[in-house]
Simulated scan of single mutants.
Amino acid sequence: MTGIPTIRAIETAHVGLAAHPELVVHGAKGGHERSDFLLVRITVAGPDGRTEVGYGEVSATPLWSGEDGTTAEHLLRTVLAPALLGAPLAPVGALERVMDRVLAANPFTKSGVSIALWDCWARWLELPLATVLGGPYRTEVPIKLSLSGDGDTLRRTYAAARRAGFGAFKVKVGLGVAGDVARVAAARELAGPDAFLGVDANGGWSRAEAARAVPLLAPYGIAFVEQPCAARDVEGLAAVRALGVPVVADESVFDLADLTRVIRADAADVISVYVGKAGGPGRAVELAATAHAFGIRSLIGSNGELGIGAAAQLHVACAVAHLATDFPSDIIGAHYYAEDILAEPLDSDGSRVRLGAAPGLGVVPRPDIVAQFR
C-alpha cells in the first residue's frame, strides 16, 4: 500500500441481459424477464502514481425500486461524480456520507458507486472485500432460487433449477390465496418432502389474506413466509409471525429507520439484506449487525443482481457475523441470466457460492463490456 489514493475518474457502461427463459420469476410485483443495469468503474491514483480500478453495479428495476440504469447514470454524472472526484478514497464511509448530502434517497444508485469504492479500496489494500468489511466469517454461502408459475411452467422452472444444482427454493405467492396454495402444493410435490421450501408474497397479501393463507400453507412444510404484507404494514407482518411460521422482512427494510420500525413491532425473525437497498456493502453489514443486536437474523436478498452485484452480495454474506445460514440466501447472478457479464464466473454450483482469495470483489467484467466504459 502506498498512501491514500484519490478518485481520478468515474465511468459507466449500460448492460442489458435476458433472464434464463426457464428461470424467469413472476410474482406479485410482476415478471423479471430481463435486467437493464448500469455498471460503474472508478479509477484511483496514489501519490506515487500507482493506480487501481474498482467496479460497481446499479442493480435496480423501476417497478420495484423506482430506479434504473438511466436515472442512475444521470444522477451519477450530474450529482455524485462532481462531489466525489478528487476526494481521498478512504475512509469509504465518509464518501457515502458525501453522497447522502448531495442526493436524497436513490439507495441503489449510491450502492453502485459504493460497491466500486469498496472494491477500489480493498484492491488497494490487496485484500478481499470480505476481509476489509470485517470478515470473513465463512467462505461459502448456501443459496436458493425462486419458483413461480403454475402447471407446466412451474415444472419447467423446477427442472431447470435442478439442472443448475439448486435444491432449496422459495415459491412466489401473493397472487390469490387459492392459486398460492395450489402452487406451493405442486412445488412441494416436485421438490420432495425434505427440500427447503419457503414462500415469498412480495407484499401481495392483505392481512386477511395472509391470515387465511399461512395456515393452509403450513402443512406443506414451509420454512418461512417472506414479506406477507405491504412494506409499511409492519403490524401485519407481526400478526403473521404470531401464526407460528418464521417471517422474513424484505421490502419492509431498506435502512436503519425501517429496521427500527420492524424491531419495535416485533415483526420479523429474519431480514433480507440487500447491498442495493442498504446503499452499499459496508452499510449492508452494519444493518445486519444491528438486526442481530435485537435478536433478528439476516440473509442476503436479491434484486436480480448481475455478476458484479452478485460478487458484492457474496462478500457481504461472508462479512456478516451472524448470517442465517439455515435460511439460504439469494445470490443467484451466476445462474439467473442467459449469459454472465464476468470474465470468470463466481464459484457457484446452485447449492452454494464460494468466496475466492483475490483482492477486492475478486471479479472483473468481460473484455467486451470493459471496452464500453465511458
Rank of each mutant, 00 (worst) to 15 (best):
M1Q: 12
I10M: 15
A13Y: 02
H14S: 13
G16D: 12
G16H: 13
L17K: 07
A19I: 02
H20N: 15
G31T: 14
H32N: 13
L39S: 00
L39P: 01
G54A: 11
E57T: 02
V58W: 05
P62M: 05
G66N: 11
E73V: 08
L75Q: 12
L76A: 04
R77F: 01
T78V: 12
T78F: 06
V79S: 04
L84W: 00
L84E: 00
L85V: 13
L89E: 01
G93Q: 11
V98W: 01
A105G: 11
N106K: 11
S114D: 12
L117A: 09
L117K: 09
L133G: 03
Y137D: 05
G151I: 09
G151A: 09
L154F: 01
R163V: 12
G165M: 00
F169N: 04
G174Q: 10
V177M: 03
D180A: 11
V181I: 14
A182P: 02
R183W: 01
A185C: 04
A187K: 02
R188F: 02
E189P: 05
P193C: 05
D194H: 14
V199I: 11
G203V: 02
S206A: 06
S206Y: 07
E209L: 05
V214A: 08
P215C: 10
L216W: 05
A230K: 09
D233W: 08
E251Y: 00
F254Y: 15
A267F: 00
I271R: 01
V273S: 07
V273T: 10
K277P: 05
G282P: 00
G282W: 00
V285R: 09
E286N: 05
T290Y: 10
G295N: 11
I296T: 10
I296Q: 05
R297W: 03
N303L: 14
A311K: 00
H315L: 01
C318G: 10
A319W: 06
L323P: 12
I332W: 03
G333H: 02
Y337P: 10
A338D: 14
A343N: 06
E344G: 04
P345E: 12
P345N: 12
L346N: 01
L346W: 01
S348F: 04
D349L: 08
D349I: 07
R352V: 08
L361W: 03
V364C: 05
P367S: 06
V370W: 03
